[in-house]
Amino acid sequence: MSPAKADRAVRVQGLEKSFGDWPVLWDLDLTLDWGQLLVLAGPNGSGKTTLLRILSTQVKPDFGAVSIAGFDLKRQPNQVRRCVGVVGHNTFLHSDLTCLENLVFYGRLFRLQNPGKTALEVLAQVGLEHRAGHRVRTLSNGMQRRVSLARALLHDPLLLLLDEPEVGLDGPSVAMLGELITRWTGLGRSIVMTTHNLELVKSWPGSQGHLDNGKVRIGEDRPSAVEETGPGL
């Protein structure tokens, strides 16, 4: 992974994506350095999730060049997948398997040397090692979200893509998330996350981006009250 480190964490140029005749993202440029946290805000339907899903290879852009850790999204999708850890709206977990079984399953698909040991380590990071043997079905929503976060950390990714990770988490869990993010960027890794709760992330180190008109505007201070009143889609 070290040669890739030479490049930026994320480099997006002239990105364009539309759904049918609805434009979502266009003329979008974005770069993110190592050790940075980028918090994306914007009204519902502004394309935050779409941007994250493009960065994680789940959605194909219509036009534009995207590279993650120096790997081209189009030509080297599997290298990109190795570099990114994703927390989405879904947990990607099978509810009839235990937390450990879920993580070991994904660990094997990521070809980890010792999936069982790594799985327990990441579970400890999200404070759920005592639940390793429980079926996901029996866990609360917040706990399932935390297991999902553990799943994203499993393969030691260089870039974390978190789509509203704070949703459904209680106070202590959110604090834990904050610590984890701070520690992560301290390691020289990068994070892109979306949120509707800008108050929350104020204390976290990182820049704020606002998705508006299909583009990301970095560092523009907008009162958070405006965020929630954008036109819904």
């Binding site: 434009p23 266009w26 339907g45 299909g214």
Partner: peptide, 8 residues
């Protein structure tokens, strides 16, 4: 058109 109107 929708882009130029800033409609998303």
């Amino acid at each position: 058109l929708r882009r130029s109107q800033g409609q998303t």
